[in-house]
């Protein structure tokens, strides 16, 4: 029996090692390649960190105005859209779970339908409408377009958190003399604070990773977001790999650290949204 357990443990951890290599190799690859020049990639194909590694590509990244501008643009667009989506999402999820009024179920259904609509469905009208409104090539325009998927996403995830609260809680607060808004702000919102963190991380990264709308709507260099800026490093089929990987590392590592720190919240958010929603 004991020998069987040892064997099983060995099997488990061997499998886990394979999973870890499978999952982490691309990250290792991105970082090692980001330290190499284009010439050295060709002359010295190696799987290990190369001896001629340098931080040159990172220096080039931070010296590039186009790249630093795109980082700034991404941060501005994604944080404004996240804050708006959170506020609108809390308001909507609150009234869809706590309040009872005519038309509530229909509105809830509209949110779910919007949540489930693929973004690839709407980029064409957005391109035309934003151009007609003189909002293409502006950060404002991109925030508005991003709200189209972030508000339904935030609401959908928050619905799960509001549903997990005992319904008597809000009534108890009101019996104690709080009005509806006070009950929401002082009792319900603090209780779903972990939910807010998880929804903030999920919606922020959703916007940060978005490529299609940004590609279609914000064409001029001064309003590009990070993914579009990195894509524009390549000229025709010629990809400067070392620089692309350095830019990618700069773009990816803060997001991955954020995920790692907020892991508990992210996992809870995904599970509450999908399992109970």
């Amino acid at each position: 029996m004991a020998r069987k357990n040892v064997k099983f443990s060995l099997f488990k951890y061997t499998m886990l090692m394979f999973v870890a290599i499978f999952v982490l190799y691309p990250v290792y690859y991105m970082i090692t390649l980001s330290l190499r020049s284009q010439a050295s990639l060709w002359s010295n194909p190696t799987l290990l960190p190369a001896s001629d590694s340098s931080l040159e590509n990172y220096r080039a990244a931070f010296a590039s105005v186009e790249f630093t501008t795109s980082l700034k643009n991404s941060v501005i667009v994604c944080s404004s859209a996240t804050i708006l989506a959170l506020v609108f999402g809390v308001m909507a999820a609150y009234s869809l779970t706590i309040l009872k009024f005519r038309g509530r179920d229909t509105m809830g259904r509209v949110i779910i339908i919007a949540f489930l609509t693929p973004g690839a469905l709407l980029f064409i009208p957005f391109a035309v409408i934003m151009a007609n409104l003189n909002l293409s090539n502006s950060l404002k325009g991109l925030v508005l377009v991003y709200l189209s998927f972030m508000v339904p996403l935030a609401t959908y995830l928050l619905l799960g958190f509001f549903r997990s609260l005992p319904p008597e809680l809000e009534e108890a607060a009101r019996i104690d003399g709080a009005n509806r808004l006070q009950a929401l702000w002082f009792v319900l919102v603090p209780l779903i604070a972990p939910g807010l963190i998880s929804v903030a991380i999920i919606t922020f990264t959703g916007a940060y990773n978005e490529l299609l709308y940004s590609l279609v709507i914000n064409v001029s260099p001064s309003v590009r977001t990070v993914p579009v800026a990195i894509l524009n490093l390549s000229v025709a089929d010629e990809v400067p790999w070392g620089r692309t990987m350095a830019y990618s590392s700069v773009a990816a590592i803060p997001i991955m650290v954020l995920y790692f720190l907020g892991q508990r919240f992210v996992v809870e958010g995904l599970q509450t949204g999908s399992v109970k929603g």
């Binding site: 999952v23 691309p26 990250v27 993914p227 990195i230 773009a251 991955m256 892991q263």
Partner: peptide
């Protein structure tokens, strides 16, 4: 281990 498994999901898609 769970954090390790989450890595591909945390990495931005475009990267």
């Amino acid at each position: 281990w769970r954090a390790v498994v989450l890595v591909p999901y945390a990495m931005p898609g475009f990267v």
